[in-house]
Simulated assay, not measured.
Amino acid sequence: MKLAAVKLTPIAFRDPPLLNAAGIHEPYALRSIIELESDTGVIGLGESYGDAAFLRLAQALQATLVGMDPFDLNGLRARAAAMLRSLWSGSRKGP
Score class of each variant (00 low, 15 high):
residue 82 A to F: 13
residue 21 A to G: 09
residue 93 K to C: 10
residue 84 L to G: 06
residue 1 M to Q: 12
residue 25 H to R: 12
residue 56 R to F: 08
residue 88 W to A: 12
residue 66 V to K: 08
residue 42 V to H: 12
residue 9 T to Y: 01
residue 88 W to M: 11
residue 52 A to S: 14
residue 53 A to W: 15
residue 86 S to P: 06
residue 28 Y to V: 03
residue 22 A to L: 14
residue 56 R to G: 04
residue 22 A to F: 13
residue 23 G to M: 00
residue 29 A to D: 08
residue 46 G to D: 02
residue 81 A to I: 05
residue 20 N to V: 01
residue 82 A to W: 13
residue 94 G to Q: 11
residue 90 G to E: 15
residue 27 P to M: 00
residue 89 S to V: 05
residue 14 R to F: 14
residue 88 W to K: 11
residue 10 P to A: 00
residue 17 P to I: 09
residue 48 S to F: 01
residue 31 R to Q: 00
residue 66 V to I: 15
residue 23 G to H: 08
residue 39 D to T: 15
residue 74 N to C: 09
residue 38 S to A: 13
residue 45 L to G: 08
residue 65 L to S: 03
residue 26 E to R: 12
residue 81 A to H: 14
residue 82 A to Q: 14
residue 44 G to S: 15
residue 24 I to V: 15
residue 65 L to C: 14
residue 46 G to I: 02
residue 77 R to L: 10
residue 84 L to T: 10
residue 17 P to R: 13
residue 48 S to I: 04
residue 95 P to K: 14
residue 74 N to F: 13
residue 70 P to L: 00
residue 54 F to S: 03
residue 61 L to C: 09
residue 25 H to L: 05
residue 40 T to L: 15
residue 93 K to R: 12
residue 47 E to R: 03
residue 27 P to T: 07
residue 1 M to K: 08
residue 10 P to C: 02
residue 63 A to D: 14
residue 45 L to P: 01
residue 58 A to R: 01
residue 33 I to Q: 04
residue 65 L to A: 06
residue 12 A to T: 07
residue 44 G to L: 05
residue 44 G to C: 08
residue 62 Q to S: 09
residue 37 E to K: 11
residue 70 P to Q: 02
residue 52 A to P: 04
residue 79 R to M: 00
residue 7 K to Q: 13
residue 85 R to A: 10
residue 43 I to A: 12
residue 58 A to H: 03
residue 57 L to M: 03
residue 20 N to D: 15
residue 6 V to P: 02
residue 15 D to W: 09
residue 50 G to D: 01
residue 59 Q to W: 01
residue 33 I to M: 02
residue 85 R to P: 05
residue 7 K to W: 09
residue 95 P to N: 12
residue 54 F to R: 02
residue 48 S to W: 03
residue 25 H to S: 12
residue 80 A to P: 04
residue 64 T to F: 03
residue 60 A to P: 07
residue 90 G to S: 10
residue 55 L to T: 01
residue 67 G to D: 07
residue 83 M to D: 09
residue 43 I to S: 02
residue 15 D to R: 11
residue 68 M to S: 04
residue 95 P to R: 14
residue 10 P to N: 04
residue 46 G to Q: 06
residue 44 G to R: 10
residue 52 A to E: 09
residue 6 V to H: 05
residue 55 L to F: 00
residue 89 S to A: 12
residue 69 D to S: 08
residue 7 K to F: 13
residue 4 A to T: 00
residue 49 Y to M: 08
residue 54 F to Q: 02
residue 49 Y to R: 09
residue 36 L to T: 07
residue 22 A to Y: 13
residue 33 I to S: 00
residue 59 Q to H: 14
residue 26 E to D: 10
residue 54 F to W: 06
residue 65 L to H: 03
residue 40 T to S: 14
